[in-house]
Simulated scan of single mutants.
Amino acid sequence: MTNVTRHARATAVVVRVRPDDEDVLVEIEDDGAGTPGPPGFGIRGMAERARALGGSLTAAAVPGDGFRVRARLPPRPAPVPSAAPPALRAEPGGVA
């Protein structure tokens, strides 16, 4: 939503969150014109966070005007390897 308000010049945005197979699918689609060019740090950062949880993220223009970000996330994050620093290891119960 931050990217929509900062870059899209959109008049409408739709947010969908739904189960999809074993994952949760989060889609944000706007009708804005946006700024052409390569993905910025915001999209890269979102993709990195999705991968860190064991998921994935795609972001692309939609036909006509608009932009869509789609994240596929597991209902529970992937466990962090035990060799990770203590601050990054998941505590029992799923809270780090």
Rank of each mutant, 00 (worst) to 15 (best):
T5Y: 13
A87W: 06
A8Y: 11
V95K: 09
V4L: 10
D65M: 05
D20I: 11
D30R: 10
T11M: 02
I28Q: 06
T11L: 00
G94P: 01
D23E: 14
D20M: 14
V62T: 04
I28C: 14
V26L: 15
R51A: 15
T2W: 00
H7Y: 15
G34T: 07
D31Y: 07
M46L: 14
I43S: 03
A90R: 02
A61T: 04
V62K: 01
A59L: 05
A47G: 13
P77S: 08
D65S: 07
G55L: 07
P92K: 05
P85N: 08
D65G: 04
A78G: 00
G32T: 14
R44M: 08
A8W: 12
A96P: 07
A83E: 05
A90H: 03
P81V: 03
P75K: 08
D23L: 11
A12K: 13
V26R: 07
G64Y: 02
G37Q: 10
V62Q: 00
A83R: 01
G93L: 09
V95M: 05
A52L: 13
G32P: 10
D20E: 15
L73Y: 02
H7S: 04
D31I: 08
D65C: 04
D65W: 03
P85H: 11
R16W: 05
G66C: 02
A60G: 04
M1P: 05
R9G: 09
R89W: 00
A50R: 01
M46N: 06
S82N: 13
R44I: 07
E27L: 15
P85G: 11
E48V: 10
A50K: 02
P81S: 04
P38E: 14
R44A: 10
F67H: 04
E29N: 00
D31F: 06
A71W: 01
G34F: 09
A50V: 11
P74Q: 13
V95T: 10
M1D: 12
P92N: 07
D31N: 15
P19V: 12
V15Q: 13
R18E: 15
V15P: 06
P74H: 11
R9T: 05
R70M: 12
F67D: 03
R68H: 08
A96F: 04
A90F: 02
R51K: 14
R49L: 15
V80I: 14
T58L: 05
V24Y: 00
A12V: 03
R6H: 10
M1W: 11
R70V: 14
R68D: 03
V4E: 01
A60L: 04
V24R: 04
A60R: 06
V4Y: 01
D20C: 13
A8C: 14
R9L: 11
P19I: 12
A90G: 03
G40W: 11
P63F: 02
P85T: 11
R49P: 00
T5N: 12
V4R: 00
A96V: 10
F67L: 09
P79T: 07
V26P: 07
A12M: 07
A84S: 15
E48I: 06
H7T: 06
A96W: 03
I43F: 09
A90S: 03
V24N: 00
D65A: 08
P77V: 03
T58I: 08
V13G: 04
